[in-house]
Amino acid sequence: MPPTDVSTEPDPAAGPPAGPVRRRRPLFYLGIALILVGLAILGWLGWQLWGTNWQSERRHAEVTEAVEKAWTGGEDRASTEFGEATAIVRIPRFGEDYAVPVLEGSSDEVLAAGIGHMEGSADAGAKGNYALAAHRVTHGQPFSEFPELEDGDLVEVQTRTATYTYELDNGGTDLILPFTSTWVLDEQPVNPDGGVQPPEGVGKRLITLVTCSEIFHTDDRSIVFGHLVSVEKTDR
């Protein structure tokens, strides 16, 4: 009797076993899906960190040009697709080229195009509290260097009729509060805890700057107070 062929060598003509392939396919597609999700997240982060800044810097320039043109025509404000622009802020601590438009309100559209003038707060140079808010990161990040502000730094607010110069009374890291601490927006802010607040004897024409206390999402805000020290009338 011829010997029985008990060889375990696979038959090349039979092809690879089907079972392992079927098991590998779901893992393969899962891996592809995870890679695509990762790329999407990286793309979103890239847009937030760089894309929104590029877009908002263009908006800053457009709104600044629009409000300056309105002033030349005798108008106090300019109507833009992002909101009503009323002023231009310059902060020497942030560099000679720093000039960011101020728009009325604090909506996402406003804060993506410049600095927001908080609803219900005083006008620039007027008695009361001229409260301004802006992003510290993304969307042009006008207040990216907020922690570098120091007591005595100047903030210049240019309008059609005058340039108002305020002197800061505390630094950018001296007062951090939850966003629910709305007393900082009062006409004459008084700290209920007896901490940092506008000092006595600086007058009743104040400015308050507000931004996020951390680079990424946070419910806390960094606050800086200041007071008016000079007014330079503009001849238009």
Rank of each mutant, 00 (worst) to 15 (best):
Y130P: 03
T80L: 11
E96F: 05
S121M: 08
E62M: 07
P147Q: 11
G95M: 02
W50N: 12
G116D: 09
A33H: 05
V37T: 06
G15T: 01
I88K: 04
E84A: 12
A66C: 07
E81H: 06
S79K: 14
G73V: 06
D76K: 12
N129V: 04
A13Q: 12
K69C: 00
A113W: 11
T72C: 05
A78H: 11
H60C: 01
L34E: 14
P12Q: 08
I32Y: 04
W44R: 04
S79N: 12
A124H: 00
R22Y: 15
N53I: 06
M118H: 09
L30F: 10
S107P: 00
P147W: 12
E75T: 10
L103W: 08
R77D: 08
V21P: 00
P12V: 10
W44A: 12
H139Q: 12
G38L: 02
P17A: 13
N53A: 07
G46E: 06
A133R: 09
R90C: 03
G31W: 03
L132S: 10
G46F: 08
E145R: 15
A133T: 14
L42Y: 04
A78S: 12
L39R: 02
A124L: 02
R25Y: 11
R58C: 01
H135L: 10
T52N: 07
